[in-house]
Amino acid sequence: MINGTKIKVEHLNLHIGKEHILKDINLVIPEKQLTVILGPSGCGKTTLLKSFNRLTDLNPDVKISGHIFNGDEDILHPKTEITQLRKKMGLLSQSPYPLPMSIFDNITYGLKISGRRKKKFLIRRVENYLRQVSLWEEVKDRLKDPASALSIGQQQRLCLARGLAVDPEIILADEPTSALDPVSSKDIEEMFLKLKQRYTIVVVTHILRQARRIADYVIFMYLGEVIEHGPAEQIFEHPQHEMTKAYLKGAYN
């Protein structure tokens, strides 16, 4: 089932202050598939995700070593151009954080930053991406309204559209449904299944059932270590490691 490799992590270690958060992580993330990083809360899933687009840089106490390759490019190399890198990775956070501006401006924010300012182009893009997340019909008459006026579920879809608008290669999602109601959660999951034909998607979750529903590839983490990773069927049907088996039985939940 595995085609190409999109991201390759080698000997990744991450400390925050004196705490060893990520311990010698080695793994691959397959291209144009949906990878789930699974594990109990506090095992370093989110930190791993954020080191992919170097949001870990925001915390000055973080010390990071090892390599994360996106193709040939080492993401952690100090000379990597960080805004270009981040543009390749759309981020969807736990609860939606729409930018403090209108619905329209939320989508065009990334585009305008990269210098696309032609009004016609922007209008087309906004419609296109809002359609992709099935939000267009709901908001087409109030694009100038502040994004904060939308419901939480709509906001999360807007955030997804905003991320897609900068044309990323990878979508990073950090427990993207944890703040949403069941219907909105289902919307997001279905969108991921649609989007994985064109994007590499990495979803962090601690919800086993969600992982079973959407994953092509699974990375199981526990206390900062990758315990096991492999194609979804293999992990779910024939887990090799005792800890994985226990988690799948619900021992840690």
Binding site: K50, L55, T83, R86, S93, Y97, L99, Y109, G163, V166
Partner: peptide, 22 residues
């Protein structure tokens, strides 16, 4: 919230753009 800053940065904004616009 820091998540808002992260959202802006992950769309390719620089630090100053994030501060000014968000």
């Amino acid at each position: 919230p820091q998540e808002l800053e992260e959202a802006s940065l992950s769309l390719g904004a620089t630090k100053w753009e994030t501060i000014k616009k968000v």
